[in-house]
Design a protein around this nucleic acid. Sequence first.
DNA 1: TTAATAATAAACAGGA
DNA 2: ATCCTGTTTATTATTA
Length: 696
Amino acid sequence: MMVESATETIRTTPSNQNGVSSLSSQSDSGGREGGSNGDTNGEISPVDLLHLQQQQALQAARQFLLQQATGLSSPSSNEVKQAPVQVPVSMAMMTPQMITPQQMQQILSPPQLQALLQQQQALMLQQLQEYYKKQQEQLHLQLLTQQQQAGKQAKEQQLGNKQLAFQQQLIQMQQLQQQHLLNLQRQGLVSLQPGQGTVAMPALQQAMCPADLQQLWKDVAGVPSTEDAMKHEGLDLSTTSSNSTSYSASKVSPQITHHSLPNGQSSIHTPKRDRARLFEWISSFSKAEPADEHLMPHSKGGYLQNTHSSHEEHTATHPLYGHGECKWPGCEALCEDMGQFIKHLNSEHALDDRSTAQCRVQMQVVQQLEIQLAKESERLQAMMTHLHMRPSEPKPFSQPLNLASNASILKRESDAYPEGLPHPPTSAAAPITPLRQGPSVISSSGLHGVGPIRRRNSDKFCTPIASELAQNCEFYKNADVRPPFTYASLIRHAILEAPDRQLTLNEIYNWFTRMFAYFRRNTATWKNAVRHNLSLHKCFVRVENVKGAVWTVDEVEYQKRRPPKMTGSPTLVKNMISGLGFGSLNASYQAALAESSLSLLNSPTMVNTSTGGSLNMMHVGHDDVSSTVEQVNSNGSCSPGLSPQQYGHQVHVKEEPAEMEEDSRPVSLMAKVSQNLVLPGDEREIEEDLPTEDLE
DNA sequence: TTAATAATAAACAGGA
DNA sequence: ATCCTGTTTATTATTA
């Protein structure tokens, strides 16, 4: 299901590229495959299923991460010129049957790649979880049966042994499952960038809810008691088994158990080998850490290292020690001083299975929290966006709009945003793209990563440049990928990002090189293009300054030069709306839209007379959703009442009231409308795919 | 097929 | 003379 939605994106890839048709067919089948697998989960061997999906996801993931790694492994200083990492693109060489992850990566925009990966991984994890759950239940059932039978037989020792075996199996399952999950994370999710990380790892969230984690902690903490009990051969099954069961019920355990534990012997009983493995496991994280550090400064690896090298540090403070007690999860042992704590740490939390398992869990907790943070951040952003543009947006045509329709707009948007799906980061900002010309962004972003290219699509209607940039800032900074934006939109963005919304040519250059690795080469080419754009487009206004000339943006002009195709009569607008497949769109809303576009047509003077905030806000708002947010970022002065002067002087500098926006307004409206409309639609699709996404 | 748009290349001018 | 900035024209590709 999720896979399908991901491939859906691919399927709609533009038909102008050689490999596209092949892509469609390929992804189509892939989508079906994934879907059917998901449905027949119970029938097909889960291992096969996982394998298949893992391969799909990981293949893409690997490629993506590779790209990231190459971009990020080099000194990440913005100014450092990076060796261009270019992926030779030859779509023509693509055979219909062969879509390499590389090509996928090139076709998909970073956010889309992320979305795809996340969806696939989410799917995998979900299915994994389901499968594990089944296994767990089965096992538990068996255990109970055994208990009953054993009870009847009244053979205490045998019972003990059997139960012990199951117990061990349970524990092993837990561990393996955790490891499995973590492996998946590591392969696909761990190294995502912070910005992108905000949308990453929903999969884990699906696999675990906070309550699970809590329970998990208890259970993992409970492991030692089992261990001890087993050592004494006098285990208290009633407690331990229930513990483990409750854990496993929510967590699951793998069938894989059987091959790692052929005779049901717990790893606890083979400490040497396992410790070696554990150590290896842990060090793998420690080693992996440096590379990822700048991506996830708060990464768990550091934590792990801290934990395990703590005895060497002996500093006055210890992250695991506070208020006189050990802060090791689930420990809370009282330690009078640091020395005692260290002692306790070394004795109780040495490198063993339990500690490692707890570490794993802690990692998951951290990731869980990161996910939560990401979701909340996104929600905040959506809220800000919403509050930002709403009050101003309806103004120009507030009369014709009744409250109800306004409310419906509001609702749609607010419904759409907070979901915090992996996809939305970009799609939320570029809602129009997926449906109307969905793939355009995709194709433009990576398809021709090198050389002279034509790409402008994302700029077509509502440029999601701000949010896209915000989301993938790091990506573009480091990856030698051409940003899928027009020069004009980039320049505009650069200028608007400036504190006083004006930049010299050189500053614009610097912004380009700072923000995009791609523009750190071929400087002559793109600089010429920048100059060309500045001169050519009326939306860029040159203002003589004391110290030279600066460039500003005339938002009105910028909006004017927007796609002419979408302009037209309200009927057209209406038709388009219905044509977009929003059958469910309520009629009054449509009418209101049409009407509002009319009112816009009829009141072109508003544009000029009202240099006030509302006008500007409208433009800003409609242009790209997050540009309002972006203003918050760029200069703290941004507020719902964005000072008109900020645009005001620019508007005045170069004003051509005569030729009015007979078309620009409807365009703006359309863009706005599309955002409001497509989002929900987009949302619906994804919602079906990720039913458990939104957990709260 | 056509028109609009964008990217690219390049010629050119003026100023520092 | 050279570089930077800015304007303009031409060509080509893409898209609707």
